[in-house]
Design a protein around this nucleic acid. Structure first.
Length: 883
RNA sequence: GCGAGGGUAGCCAAGCGGUCAACGGCGGCGGACUCAAGAUCCGCUCCCGUAGGGGUUCGUGGGUUCGAUUCCCUCCCCUCGCACCA
């Protein structure tokens, strides 16, 4: 009967309806400072996968937990609804992206409801609606007003056959072919719109230090991505081409610069190529910036070292990248690995100019750089007046002394190109005036610029929407053409968390006052794949809005959890591998609660874990058993006494609540759930052993149900109801316990150690059938002695103990115990008191009786034999077994 | 190469200065229940031990400490991110 499971479908449907009716997840606009729990909104592909289920179960469980502890909670959901897959799907199915997207949204919303996720659907947003994307446009215009938007040429992937720009992921394979027509993709310069995120590079970098609620990995990835580097910019003269700017972080090595290198697409390289066949051939055919080998060609030109006046050869080399630094560099093979490799290949001079820091009083000694560069900082040698300086000082002095040099900071972060030549995105609200006004922002009152009807065409459908393009210039009233680029969908997601606060607001993207109350997001949960882009762009938007729209927060997400993957046999689930487990199937077969519980107990949220059908089955069996326990209890209320056993169970209930609550706070659901399941086992053992005390037993069941409620909301409602509660468990108060975790831990350890010791004795002594077991608590004076031993720092502990008359009276026993304490002095820690130990053991005696099938007597020291007391210590009662 | 996170008993996985031979789960073994199987429940699961003892363990080799799975260093291996970054 157990393996049949319970009727989850009925239970789930019943409570989903009840929540609907009660509007259980609605967050009123009036609440102040709700706890904002958010999962990264999904792209509406039409199918919820395991990753989604895990992501949203985490936020749902946390939101429910916080709600039960009495918080107001904001837990909304929406749709990252623009994007290329909709265009492709529309073409395949001969429909349009809009209809397809909304179909998918409807399906996915149903799937989410079926999972029991408690969202405030009144706050739902879909980024593809004009009501939403008009604010993308508004924000674009605001950014432009603040000088944070730029239009300039940029290189893009271009398919000449489809006549469209391709995203990097649409370029396939080494050969770089168009994914749709297999035409080789070209690079093309196109005018593109950029948001100037680099204006905020320093703050985005420095504020990472304060994001203490974020995982280190994500913080580090953002730091790397921004990639700030301090160095020096200086000029080298190249005969016939004037001065060239180079960037270096190691200007201290300038005396060792033995050649100069230019990127293949540097203007001077181009100029040289005009005249020089070899250089031409190198640039056009041989340069391989992706290869491991540094390749290059001599130009025959020389550059003048601004410090030494030396003439050094100039190369065009493919390891020099035009978008790093200035696209030109001074090469110091003695102290840079890559320059070294190139110098060896081209047989160029390698001069050491930095020596390792010598020992005190010794002269610096040149390192051997013939085989390998010495890349550490050190002391300058062979550097004229600068010899003897340390690297850092030398960098400062040289930057000061060289006429053309100045300190410079380089970033790896580039401005954010948001132009996409595609249909299903936010139209960039710009018109191009034919009469010389240039690119003009569409005025606020004319927003949104709505998308025209979808046209099925190979290129950008907006280019084909000729009527839509025709407009007039807002400035001069003359003829104008609409911008046909749409925005990167990361724009949509850079501020959607603000829109949930006031999703229907018609005159602003967000309600300022309420947003200032409600933001930031307290707990954000999503996949690690968004570690850089989405999370960095959101931080950028938040900072811009703080500077220009009176947002009072400079960071959007206080705590971030990057959830791990759901795997199958150690491999990521993916359609191509064909190892996908469908959440829909699991829900049908076992129910949403089982799926949720299995996932949450399988591993910590941030770790990967393996999906296991076995685990799912046993989780389902657990829920079925729990349901039976509640039903049996309700059917016939037991009439047991409030005895020692009941007090043991009562203490375990408190312990479980105390520990599980801490785990919920930390989002370590796996451990919280383990506690709840352990308590379930204790309750079952209790009921098996004796007729339970009804009040205690019910308190235990009630606690288990509520501890599970965040993760298994449907069954929890069902059982809560069966236990006779009128309210919904979503609104029920979180169970409380008046004990501290330390006390709980000590008590559990005492009981566990005692049971363990008895087992050892029975086993080692070969006792077949114990007749009676006495458990003797240590005498009071030993507890006093222990306390003194912990607190005292006197060298002779025994002497210290003997100053207490009631200990001294114990004679040899005191000396023996004192010796033991002395030996373990540093490791001692306080146990429970003698009365507490007695109570704990008395309460746990039934467990021992049950296990060994022998009567157990817990004995106070005062009532015990002298001989038994000898072995009794605080935390470790003496054990006497009669066989 | 740089950076981040890891390496714990047959497997998965907690612990992160003493209470640790090390939670929990799976698998395996034994027992209860059953005609039997399944499910469920109770134990055991590094080695040696006839009263709670001893020995050897937490990737490797060192170090700090009265004491290290826990802190520091070296090296090896895994996973992720960045990478001809000047």
């Amino acid at each position: 009967m157990s393996d049949a499971g319970y009727d989850h479908a009925t239970v789930e449907r019943r409570w989903q309806e009840a929540w609907d009716e009660a509007d259980a997840y609605r967050t009123s606009d009036d609440v102040e400072e709700p706890t904002y729990v958010l999962g990264m909104y999904p792209y509406p592909s039409g199918k919820l996968h395991m990753g989604h289920v895990r992501n949203y179960t985490i936020t749902d469980a946390y939101a429910r937990y916080r709600r039960m502890t009495g918080d107001e909670v904001l837990h909304p959901m929406g749709w990252d609804a623009f994007g290329l897959p909709a265009e492709n799907a529309a073409k395949e199915r001969d429909t349009n992206p809009r209809d397809w997207t909304f179909d998918c949204i409807d399906t996915m919303r149903d799937q989410m409801d079926a999972m029991g996720f408690g969202y405030d659907w009144d706050r739902e947003i879909a980024t593809c609606t004009p009501e939403y994307y008009q604010w993308n446009q508004w924000l674009f215009s605001r950014f432009r007003e603040e000088g944070l938007v730029e239009r300039r040429d940029a290189e893009v992937n271009w398919c000449p056959h489809c006549e469209t720009v391709l995203a990097d992921e649409q370029v396939e394979g080494e050969a770089e072919l168009c994914w749709r027509c297999d035409t080789p993709v070209e690079q093309r310069e196109l005018e593109q719109w950029f948001l100037q995120i680099t204006e905020y590079a320093d703050e985005l970098l420095e504020a990472i230090d304060d994001l203490e609620g974020w995982p280190n990995s994500v913080r580090q990835m953002q730091r790397n991505w921004i990639g700030r580097q301090y160095g020096t910019e200086l000029e080298f003269d190249i005969d016939g081409h004037g001065s060239v700017e180079a960037f270096t972080t190691r200007v201290d090595t300038i005396h060792g610069a033995t050649f100069f290198a230019l990127a293949p697409d540097h203007p001077i390289s181009e100029a040289v190529a005009e005249e020089d066949e070899d250089v031409r051939r190198f640039i056009d055919h041989e340069a391989d910036p992706d290869g491991d080998e540094p390749n290059g060609v001599a130009t025959g030109l020389t550059a003048t070292n601004p410090v030494t006046g030396d003439e050094i050869p100039v190369y065009v080399a493919d390891f020099v990248l035009s978008d790093v630094g200035t696209g030109a560099l001074m090469a110091v093979p003695g102290h840079d690995d890559r320059d070294h490799a190139f110098a060896q290949k081209k047989d160029l001079e390698i001069v050491p100019v930095i020596a390792p820091e010598p020992d005190e009083g010794d002269e610096p000694e040149a390192p051997d750089v013939s085989e390998e560069a010495f890349t550490d900082d050190g002391v300058l040698i062979n550097s004229g007046d600068y010899s003897g300086l340390d690297s850092e000082t030398a960098r400062e002095r040289l930057t000061e002394d060289i006429d053309t040099a100045e300190e410079a900071t380089q970033y790896q972060l580039r401005d954010w190109g948001i132009s996409r030549q595609r249909y299903w995105g936010t139209p960039i609200p710009i018109v191009h005036c034919h009469d010389g006004c240039g690119a003009v922002s569409v005025p606020e009152e004319e927003l949104p610029v709505e998308l025209p009807e979808f046209i099925n065409t190979t290129g950008n459908p907006l280019d084909a929407a000729e009527e839509w393009q025709e407009t007039t210039c807002p400035e001069c009233g003359g003829d104008a053409t609409r911008e046909t680029d749409t925005m990167d969908t990361f724009v949509d997601s850079s501020w959607y968390f603000l829109r949930y606060v006031s999703p229907d607001l018609e005159d602003a993207p967000f309600d300022r006052e309420r947003t200032n109350d409600w933001m930031p997001v307290d707990q954000y949960v999503g996949g690690i794949e968004h570690a850089v882009m989405h999370l960095l762009y959101s931080r950028f938007f938040t900072k811009v809005l703080a500077d220009h729209e009176e947002l009072e927060h400079r960071e959007p997400f206080t705590n971030l959890l990057a959830q791990g993957m759901v795997q199958l046999e150690g491999e990521k689930m993916s359609k191509s591998k064909g190892n996908v487990v469908s959440p829909q199937r699991i829900v049908e077969e076992y129910g949403a609660d089982t799926a949720r519980l299995f996932m949450m107990q399988a591993a910590q949220p941030e770790r990967d874990f393996d999906w296991s059908e076995e685990g799912v089955r046993s989780t389902n069996a657990y829920l079925t058993r729990l349901k039976e326990m509640v039903e049996e209890y309700v059917a016939e209320e037991p009439d047991g006494d409030d005895d020692a056993v009941a007090s043991y169970v009562a203490a375990e209930i408190d312990a479980t609540i105390a520990l599980a609550s801490e785990e919920y706070d930390d989002l370590t659901f796996n451990r919280a759930l383990r506690e709840a399941q352990d308590l379930t086992r204790t309750l079952r053992q209790y009921a098996d052993y004796t007729a339970p005390h009804a009040e205690t037993y019910e308190r235990g069941l009630s606690a288990v149900v509520r501890l599970l409620a965040p993760v298994t909301p449907h069954l929890a409602e069902e059982l809560w109801d069966e236990l006779g509660n009128d309210d919904l468990v979503v609104d029920a108060p979180w169970p409380t316990a008046d004990i501290d975790a330390d006390h709980v831990t000590k008590r559990r350890r005492l009981v566990e150690n005692t049971r363990e010791d008895i087992r050892d004795i029975v086993d080692v002594a070969g006792i077949e059938d114990p007749q009676a077991i006495d458990v003797v608590v240590a005498p009071d004076w030993k507890y006093d002695a222990l306390e003194i031993a912990i607190e005292s720092d006197a060298p002779n502990l025994i002497g210290e103990l003997m100053q207490e008359s009631h200990i001294r009276e114990q004679g040899d026993a005191a000396a023996d115990y004192g010796q033991d304490l002395q030996a373990e002095r540093e490791a001692l820690s306080m146990t429970l008191g003698p009365d507490e130990e007695y109570d704990a053991l008395e309460a746990a005696a039934w467990l021992i009786e049950r296990e060994f099938e022998a009567p157990v007597t817990v004995v106070r020291a005062a009532d015990a034999d002298e001989s038994a007391l000898k072995n009794a210590e605080p935390g470790r009662p003496a054990i006497e077994i009669e066989d």
